[in-house]
Amino acid sequence: MTFTPTADKLIPDLKPKEELVLLARTLWREGYNDHLAGHITISLGDGTLLCNPWLLTWDEIRPCDIIRIDLEGNLIEGDWPVPLGIPLHLELHRARDDVRVAMHNHPLYGTVWGDMREIPPAMDQSSSLGGGQLVLVDEYAGSVNSSEAAAKTVAALGDADLALLAGHGVFVLGSTVRAVHQRAVALEQRCRNAWYVRAAGGVLDSPLPAWFSEQFRRSDGDGFRGFWEATVRAELRADPTLLDAPEP
């Protein structure tokens, strides 16, 4: 596929399966790359979800690999197995109609802060992008395929938009793929930069003014046009055939 961006059209028109694949691949480059771990779901609004399959890493999936499941975790469409840890997403989508896109993975810095049971401050403006409320969820109550444990995590999450999951990883939610991408990138940068500040002997007291932090916290994450689009173009340059339909 050849695509030339213009001021009015920064990326090609994307179908939901293509959005999911590009979200997975762009976040893999940002450190969301714990081997086979991680799930992305997109609600189709009809009681079904698109989901990345089990057995494939985020940097190798293609649109034809994406599966569709119902809210009980049953496979409806696709040729790959349903991920083992999908109960977290099933419980989330049953409880939160406001969430269209949900992403879970184990990035290094976000996971470490969750394991330490601390929420690092946003030490710089880029770490604030995407907005949303970040909470710590210390509710590791069972294995990743346990619906009961997943329900406890979702209940502890409340109406927050991002979570550090103690002993587990991170959970990032949004109404669009662009919002989840921006929030996920900013979250890992926030966790990484705060770690460096502490390691350098600095004080974790954000220099950002309160009004700035509050303004970004209230953001829905979907307003920064260009950031998501630039990373999509990078993926399409790296694999120009990514969105091509498979041969029959």
Rank of each mutant, 00 (worst) to 15 (best):
M1E: 09
K9C: 05
P12K: 13
P12Y: 12
P16S: 10
E18M: 11
L23T: 04
L23H: 05
A24G: 12
A24V: 04
T26S: 13
W28Q: 02
W28E: 02
E30R: 11
D34H: 10
L36Q: 00
L36K: 02
G38M: 02
H39P: 00
H39K: 03
I42H: 00
D46E: 11
D46L: 07
G47K: 06
T48K: 05
L49T: 01
L49R: 00
P53V: 04
W54Y: 15
W54I: 03
L55G: 00
L56Y: 00
L56M: 04
T57S: 07
T57Q: 06
E60F: 06
E60M: 08
I67D: 00
R68H: 10
I69P: 00
D70P: 07
E72M: 09
G73A: 07
N74R: 14
N74I: 04
L75V: 06
G78L: 03
G78F: 02
G78D: 02
W80C: 01
G85Y: 06
P87C: 04
L88C: 02
L88A: 05
H89R: 03
H89V: 01
H89A: 00
H89S: 01
L90C: 01
R94E: 03
A95F: 03
D97L: 12
H104S: 06
H104G: 04
N105G: 12
H106P: 09
Y109A: 10
G110C: 10
G110P: 05
W113Y: 13
G114W: 06
R117H: 14
P120Y: 08
P120I: 13
P121H: 13
M123R: 11
D124P: 03
S127N: 09
G131E: 05
Q133L: 15
E139V: 12
Y140Q: 15
S143D: 15
S146H: 14
S147K: 12
S147H: 15
A149M: 14
A151T: 10
T153N: 13
A155S: 10
A155C: 04
A155I: 07
A156P: 03
L157P: 00
A163I: 03
H168K: 08
H168S: 08
G169W: 04
L173K: 01
S175L: 06
T176C: 09
H181W: 14
R183G: 07
A184H: 04
V185Y: 11
E188R: 07
E188Q: 12
Q189A: 09
R190Y: 10
C191F: 11
C191T: 13
R192C: 11
R192D: 08
N193F: 14
A194N: 13
Y196Q: 15
V197H: 12
R198K: 15
R198H: 14
G202Q: 14
L204F: 09
P207A: 08
A210L: 10
E214T: 09
E214P: 01
F216P: 00
G221A: 09
G226R: 14
G226V: 13
F227M: 10
W228F: 14
W228R: 11
E229V: 12
E235D: 10
R237G: 02
T241V: 10
P246Q: 04
P248I: 08
